[in-house]
Computed example of a mutant assay.
Amino acid sequence: MTRDELIRPVPALLKEHAEPAPERVAYADSAHGVTCAGLERRTRALAGHLTRTGLARGDRVAIIRGNRVEAAESCLAVLRAGMVGVPLDPRSSDAEPAHFLKDSRAAFVITDAAHPVRLRRPGSPYDGLGALVAGPGPVPDGARSFHSAVESDEPAEIDTLGLDDPARMPYTSGTTHRPKGVLSTQRAALWSVAACYATIFGLSSGDRLLWPLPQFHGLSHSPAILGVTAVGASARIAGDPTAPGGLRQEPVTAHEGLGGPFTAPAGVPATYHRLVGSEGAAPPALRMCLVAGAPSGPALRTAMEEALGAPLFDAYGSTETCGIIAAVRPEGPRADGSCGPPVPGVEVRVVEPRSGADVRDAAEGEVWVRSPGLSPRTRRERAERAVRIPPSSRIVRDP
Results as ranks from 00 to 15, higher is better:
Gly293Thr: 09
Pro341Ser: 10
Ala266Ile: 03
Pro265Arg: 08
Arg208Gly: 02
Arg52Ser: 13
Lys15Thr: 05
Val291Thr: 14
Arg3Met: 12
Leu213His: 03
Ser355Ile: 06
Asn67Arg: 06
Asp59Glu: 13
Arg121Met: 09
Ser124Met: 07
Arg8Lys: 10
Lys180Trp: 02
Ile63Glu: 00
Glu366Met: 14
Leu219Arg: 01
Gly232Tyr: 00
Met304Lys: 14
Ala95Ile: 08
Asp165Ala: 15
Val348Tyr: 06
Ala357His: 08
Ser204Val: 06
Val117Asn: 04
Val86Ala: 02
Val328Ala: 06
Val350Cys: 14
Val78Pro: 00
Glu250Ile: 04
Arg388Tyr: 01
Ala47Gly: 13
Arg168Tyr: 07
Ser278Pro: 01
Pro9Trp: 09
Ala292Asn: 08
Pro20Leu: 06
Ser220His: 00
Gly66Trp: 01
Gly267Phe: 04
His217Arg: 14
Cys339Pro: 00
Val346Tyr: 03
Ser220Pro: 00
Asp141Thr: 07
Trp211Thr: 09
Gly48Ala: 14
Gly123Ala: 12
Arg370Asp: 05
Tyr27Arg: 13
Val182Ile: 15
Val367Ala: 04
Ala98Thr: 05
Asn67Thr: 05
Phe201Lys: 07
Cys289Gln: 09
Tyr272Glu: 04
Cys196Tyr: 06
Val69Ser: 09
Ser92Tyr: 06
Val78Gln: 00
Thr175Ala: 10
Arg44Leu: 01
Ala285Gln: 14
Ser152His: 08
Thr2Cys: 08
Arg334Cys: 03
Leu203Pro: 02
Val182Ala: 11
Glu16Ala: 15
Leu312Ser: 10
Gln215His: 15
Ser222Asp: 14
Ala327Trp: 01
Val351Ala: 13
Gly340Tyr: 03
Phe313Ser: 08
Arg8Asn: 05
Ser375Trp: 09
Val369Ala: 11
Val150Trp: 01
Ser30Ile: 05
Thr253Ile: 06
Ala270Thr: 09
Val228Leu: 01
Ser222Gln: 15
Pro298His: 12
Leu119His: 02
Ala47Asn: 11
Pro125Glu: 08
Glu384Thr: 11
Val328Leu: 05
Ala383Asn: 03
Asp240Met: 11
Ala224Lys: 00
Gln215Cys: 12
His115Asn: 12
Glu384His: 14
Arg8Tyr: 03
His147Cys: 08
Ala266Met: 11
Leu219Gly: 15
Ala281Ser: 14
Val193Gln: 08
Leu129Asp: 10
Ala235Trp: 00
Pro90Val: 07
Ala95Lys: 14
Met304Gly: 11
Arg91Trp: 05
His115Leu: 12
Ala62Trp: 00
Pro20Asn: 04
Ser234Glu: 01
Gly277Leu: 10
Val351Asp: 05
Val346Lys: 04
Asp240Lys: 13
Arg121Lys: 15
Ser184Asn: 10
Leu210Arg: 01
Glu154Cys: 08
Ala143Thr: 07
Ala285Ser: 15
Ala77Gln: 03
Thr302Leu: 13
Arg370His: 07
Gly260Val: 06
Asp59Tyr: 11
His147Met: 08
Ile325Ser: 04
Ala98Gln: 09
Gly181Asp: 06
Ile110Gln: 09
Cys322Met: 15
Ala224Asp: 03
Asp336Asn: 10
Arg329Lys: 07
Leu203Ser: 10
Ala294Ile: 05
Pro244Leu: 10
Pro372Leu: 13
Pro22Met: 13
Arg388Asn: 04
Leu88Lys: 01
Arg44His: 10
